[in-house]
Design a protein around this nucleic acid. Structure first.
Lengths: 337, 337
DNA sequence: GTTAGCACTCGCCTATTGAGAGTGCTAATT
DNA sequence: AATTAGCACTCTCAATAGGCGAGTGCTAAC
């Protein structure tokens, strides 16, 4: 804990630097921070804040910018995130209201809303449960030789795949096959189904093969691939204007899902921050990530995150992430009614 | 038509500039072009090519770079695109073999393959027909209050949406409803269905509403949204390293689909080039686009395109675009068998 | 503990300069 | 008439230097 005055000064420096992207000088703080002291005193305080590692100077004679540690202190002690205004909430709710009722679609939309509201990158994963059970399947005739296999997994997760048939089938035949397979396998996990070892004629065998591979694909991941939006917005930030920096980040994102690497939010905390050099990956040393896990019925979980420069508008970002996370949870709850 | 020697010189300049991204000097041409003349002669020829508008100098004392007109002449007269080697073809076929049999998925995969093979941006639209007819629909129970509506449109196009039910329904009930709606509406267009004006109880009414809005969404577009891949690759090109240029392009792409604006390939031509300033949009003045339309049974059409710097490796790009376009057509044909 | 005053540092901007690259032109050659 | 060697000329790029201004740290007074 710092003194009251140094708290306020650090807060001013962060806010100002976030706003202008320029180092903050003592004279500017004197004029605009509201602190009733002269610039000389502010210089003394700044020297001390720098000595303690909360701020730093890009070069000898420039103003100060927050260090990673300064941001960390700021997000933990100083900032007061304020709720998004009702008008914004309403607009967002409206956007979701118009969307189709599919979990993946919600995630995509959430990412897109986050990105455009905050002008940072947004990462949202669709809700996902650790182990899926077959709830039901249905074959839909697309064409006499082609059917669409729709698989409903236990957790409101619907996946599908087309399969080709070795001879023509009508919808009625497919419906019958679906009913037979459902009565055999509904309610079971992939391992269960494999253990049954039932012999099937060709079409049924192929359908079950596909079901198993779809279920395996689901079970094989912790979080799903995140939907990423807001690259354009990110590029607009001055720290990424050089193109190379963003290239590094893109390369990283192509390989790994940064949300996976983020330590899970501790119990009791609703959002997790990873700031600058706290990232394991060097490419993100000038970035901060804010993540919130959301969870729904039946063990469904997912994550909502923002990726921006360390010079991020934290209060706005965190309240938005928190809000979107809540929206995802509400949608899931409503889905189950 | 230029003289044989100027053709070869221009070809050398384009090839060399594409390779190195550096202006080509007369001395370099003397050494590496294979032309049996001195640099002085080459300088004379260059002066003439410049006078005719095929090449230009970035500044007084630099080598020459191709102008848009030079590239245009190059793609039309000079280059000899060579087929991708069999090994590459095989790899690509293999990638498609593993993919699920969905047209949108093919398009996404095609874009991703193109982008990574060529290291440029790739735009591929899923096959799409001008006017869709309802082939069949099927309601799949997801949850007692939620059903997934799967709509098969005439052209192997499957779309879906979840709908919520006002009271619980079993799969059997839903199957029955599906059968009833199918017998009424299968084979008709959205307009037909609207004209029938049949009154339905609540669930059926909602299903039909959704069907209509899905059909409208399909019919409302000429080409679908393209799948865009390869931003990372594009950013790697030196002409886009500055970040701003790519930003302009992203902004443009967010608003409009450049494939739409491209004049349709003329009959008899298989690919269309738009080079540099030939683009209507100023943001693309340093870009070239190569597009190939593909078409399949039942009036299905789509487009495969590459977006790169004007300094693009045209022979490789055009042969790849051509090949991917062919792959899309084959997939569609095979889908109908 | 605070503040005014001031010397000092350092980045940035604007010449200036020199080297190097590459051309265009001229005159000689084939 | 076409080609070529030679050379002066132009222009970019990189390095260097000087001046300006921003902003600090320190000292001494309050």
């Amino acid at each position: 804990m710092l003194t009251e005055r140094r708290d306020r000064l650090l807060q001013f420096i962060v806010d100002e630097y976030v706003r202008t992207a320029q180092p903050v000088a003592s004279a500017a703080a004197e004029r605009r921070s509201g602190l009733p002291v002269s610039s000389a005193t502010i210089r003394n305080e700044m020297a001390r804040l720098e000595h303690e590692g909360f701020i730093e100077q890009p070069h000898t004679s420039a103003g100060r910018i927050p260090s990673d540690r300064g941001y960390r202190y700021y997000v933990e002690e100083l900032m007061r995130p304020k709720e998004p205004p009702d008008s914004v909430k309403q607009t967002i709710r409206h956007q979701f209201h118009q969307a189709t009722a599919e979990t993946a679609e919600w995630a995509r939309l959430a990412a897109s809303v986050l990105a455009s509201r905050l002008s940072y990158g947004a990462l949202v994963t669709a809700p996902h449960a650790a182990s899926s059970h077959l709830r039901s399947l249905q074959l839909v005739s697309v064409h006499e030789y082609v059917a669409l296999l729709v698989v409903v997994l236990r957790e409101t997760l619907v996946v599908q795949q087309t399969i080709t048939l070795d001879r023509p089938h009508t919808q009625d035949e497919l419906t019958e096959i679906s009913a037979r397979l459902n009565s055999l396998y509904a309610g079971h996990s992939a391992d269960d189904i494999r253990a049954m070892q039932i012999e099937h004629p060709s079409v049924e065998a192929e359908a079950i093969q596909s079901v198993l591979s779809l279920m395996d694909a689901q079970d094989g991941q912790n979080l799903g691939e995140p939907f990423l939006e807001g690259l354009r917005e990110l590029l607009r930030e001055p720290e990424f204007a050089r193109g190379e920096t963003i290239l590094e980040i893109l390369d990283l994102l192509a390989g790994a899902n940064p949300l996976e690497a983020i330590p899970l939010a501790q119990a009791g905390e609703d959002v997790t921050f990873v700031i600058g050099a706290e990232h394991a990956e060097d490419a993100l040393r000038h970035c901060s990530v804010i993540v919130s896990r959301y969870s729904g019925p039946a063990g469904l979980r997912g994550a909502v995150g923002v990726l921006g420069p360390t010079r991020m508008h934290y209060p706005r970002a965190v309240s938005m992430v928190r809000y979107m996370s809540g929206v995802m949870e509400e949608l899931l709850d409503a889905y189950f009614r």
